[in-house]
Amino acid sequence: MKKNRLSSIFNMVILIAFGAISLFPIYMVVINSFKSQDQIFNSVLQLPTTLHFTNYTEAFSQINIAQALWNSLTVTGIGIAGIVLFGSMAGYKLARTPGKLSQIIFLFFMSSMLIPFHSIMITLTRMANMIGIQGSTVGLGLIYIGLGVSMSIFLTTGFVKTIPKELEEAAKIDGANEMQTFIKVILPLLSPILVTIGILNLLWIWNDFLLPLLMLTNVNDYTIILSVNTLFGEYNNDWPKILASLVITTIPLITAYVFLQKYILDGIAEGAVKG
């Protein structure tokens, strides 16, 4: 009993220590984002004595946050919608059509999941330019569909196999055509895995850096991550403003995380275990 208690305390201490390390950088960035440059250089650990909101107003004026947020939303929204819808359609059909061909197509999609982005980035940039979608947030969203749909197919195929076929047959007897059946009967049943897919892709697309960097040509189209990156330009290295912009960038996802953490954490476990 006593031993148990002791080890429990020990266990708690280690966890708290790791937890502190985990949060320390975020905490540091947040408290220092309210300080002046002098305060940062002289007493980085202290809580700010006066709150310099000017850091935030300046960061806001430097990058058009509202526009950047909207751009990020557009890209992520289109990307996720396409990945979820098209991926689940294909995944469902592949799972319900047994045979060699399905297997080949499935493997064909899967094999791409190992391709490093660096292998296709040059030709992808050229392709986007050829079909005239380089420099548009909508176009960037469409590209994400192409890059992310494999994973979505992979996850839905696994999930569909756990759904009994009787339901579709019942719908068929009721006279619904295949697409209707899919939308009305299958999609709702798939929703747990679709949420997982949505979350995994949200984390990826929202936070992605290199692809937007190559694709977006106009400052006004920059996603929020890209906008912050430009702040790090050669002549603009002042920490208060940078830290404020880091906080602004991170807030949307952290907020989403606080509210949706159960779905996010379960989604990740789900996504991995299904693999």
Partner: peptide, 19 residues
């Protein structure tokens, strides 16, 4: 108006020109 950061500017312009 496109105004990339100085670290990326050269490569971005090069990409645009060659594509």
């Amino acid at each position: 108006l496109e105004m990339p950061g100085p670290n990326e500017a050269a490569q971005i312009l090069q990409t645009r020109l060659s594509s």
